[in-house]
């Protein structure tokens, strides 16, 4: 009986942990303060890494007044972020970005010194809108 209980716990443990993790991430995305950080390509010659855009915060062009004490909390953020782009769009999006060098920014949900990435903006519009406009 003791072993059966342990087996049930072993099965439930990953399920419950994953559910808590998803809810925790979703909570941060939904209820954190919204901040926008300017970004550039992590390696400007090779923006795309697999299906992901590799981006790095550009603190010189970021509005630091949106943070506490008007200071950009650089250490709270990672030096490199990856943004998932679908396989079909990725090569042409990279081509547009390399040609036009637009301003890019990432919207984060920021709470308790914990940033969670929400959206990618290109020229202050959601990246899909910018991409569709350029495609036409």
């Amino acid at each position: 009986m003791y072993r059966v209980i342990l087996f049930r716990l072993a099965l439930f443990f990953p399920l419950v942990t994953l559910l808590i993790w998803i809810l925790h991430l979703q909570y941060y995305i939904l209820y954190g303060n919204s901040v926008t950080v300017a970004v550039t390509g992590y390696d400007p010659r090779d923006l795309l890494s697999g299906h992901y855009l590799s981006l790095t915060p550009d603190w010189d062009n970021t509005d630091c007044t949106q943070f506490e004490e008007n200071k950009c909390p650089k250490t709270d953020f990672e030096p490199r972020y990856r943004f998932y782009i679908s396989e079909e769009i990725a090569p042409s999006l990279e081509k547009f970005i390399n040609q036009l060098r637009p301003n890019m920014s990432l919207e984060f949900s920021y709470q308790d010194h914990h940033p969670a990435m929400r959206k990618l903006f290109i020229e202050n519009m959601p990246w899909q809108n910018w991409y569709n406009a350029k495609k036409q």
Partner: peptide, 26 residues
């Protein structure tokens, strides 16, 4: 999948270590 949906930055093989932690009792 969760990492992809929430655009979590990769940190080496930490995801695999997390998996090892979750499946350890099994």
């Amino acid at each position: 999948l969760i990492g992809q949906i929430y655009n979590l930055p990769p940190e080496g093989l930490k995801a695999v270590l997390f998996w090892a932690g979750l499946t350890f009792p099994l």
